[in-house]
Amino acid sequence: MHAELPKRYAKGGRPQGDPADLRTATIGVRVSAAEYALLRERAASMQMKPAQWLRTAALSRRLPPPPVATINREQYAELARLAANLNQLTRLANEGQHVNIAPALLAETQRLRLLLLGVKDNVDDR
């Protein structure tokens, strides 16, 4: 029979990490030569590789807000007009003058508020 080989007490090499942390997905980004030079320069200043610098920069920054839907922009303009009217009425009331608020103004304000919330049946059941 074969003589038993001596057992190794510890495996060599880098210890395995958590499999959940393993990076397997790749994102391809095309950049111009000037952009690539700038990325390499910025990464080198942080003693990183360009891919590592891009990942860190992308994941640590706040994204710009998503574009506002057209319907919301149109309704926002209407709401701004109504808000200006309400501000004028509030100023007059604060100066002690008698103010009458037309029910149509309040109804229109409520309608726009519900539209911006995405409520279609004019019923706010929140």
Rank of each mutant, 00 (worst) to 15 (best):
H2C: 03
E4R: 06
E4I: 07
L5D: 03
P6N: 01
R8W: 00
Y9L: 12
K11P: 01
G12N: 04
R14V: 10
P15S: 09
Q16V: 13
G17M: 09
D18S: 05
A20D: 15
D21P: 01
R23M: 15
R23G: 06
I27E: 11
I27P: 02
G28C: 06
R30N: 00
R30K: 15
S32Q: 08
S32M: 11
A33P: 04
A34N: 05
A34G: 01
E35G: 08
A37C: 03
A37K: 06
L38F: 04
R40W: 04
E41L: 13
R42V: 07
R42A: 08
R42Y: 05
A43C: 10
A44Q: 12
S45D: 13
S45V: 06
M46W: 12
M46Q: 15
M46S: 12
M48K: 07
P50I: 14
P50F: 14
A51R: 14
R55G: 07
R55I: 10
T56Q: 15
S60D: 13
S60E: 13
R61Y: 00
L63Q: 13
P64W: 13
P64L: 14
P65K: 14
P65R: 15
P66Y: 04
P67I: 03
P67N: 01
A69Q: 12
T70Q: 15
I71Q: 11
I71S: 12
I71N: 08
I71W: 10
N72H: 10
N72V: 11
N72I: 11
R73W: 08
E74H: 06
E74P: 03
A77E: 06
A77P: 04
A77W: 00
L79W: 01
A80N: 03
R81T: 10
L82E: 08
A84V: 04
N85A: 03
L86P: 00
L86R: 04
L89K: 10
T90Q: 09
T90H: 06
R91M: 03
R91V: 00
L92H: 01
L92W: 03
A93N: 04
A93C: 03
N94W: 02
E95F: 00
E95H: 05
G96D: 13
G96R: 10
Q97E: 13
Q97L: 12
H98C: 04
V99I: 00
V99G: 02
N100G: 03
N100D: 12
N100T: 14
I101A: 09
I101F: 07
P103Q: 14
P103T: 11
P103M: 12
A104G: 03
A104V: 00
L105F: 08
L106R: 08
L106K: 07
Q110S: 01
Q110L: 12
Q110I: 05
L112G: 01
L112T: 02
L114G: 01
L115S: 02
L115P: 02
L116D: 04
L116C: 10
L116G: 02
L117D: 11
L117P: 02
L117H: 10
L117F: 06
G118R: 12
G118W: 05
G118S: 02
V119D: 07
V119N: 09
K120F: 07
K120N: 13
D121Y: 10
D121K: 14
N122Y: 02
N122I: 02
V123G: 01
V123A: 09
D124M: 09
D125I: 10
D125W: 07
R126W: 13
R126V: 05
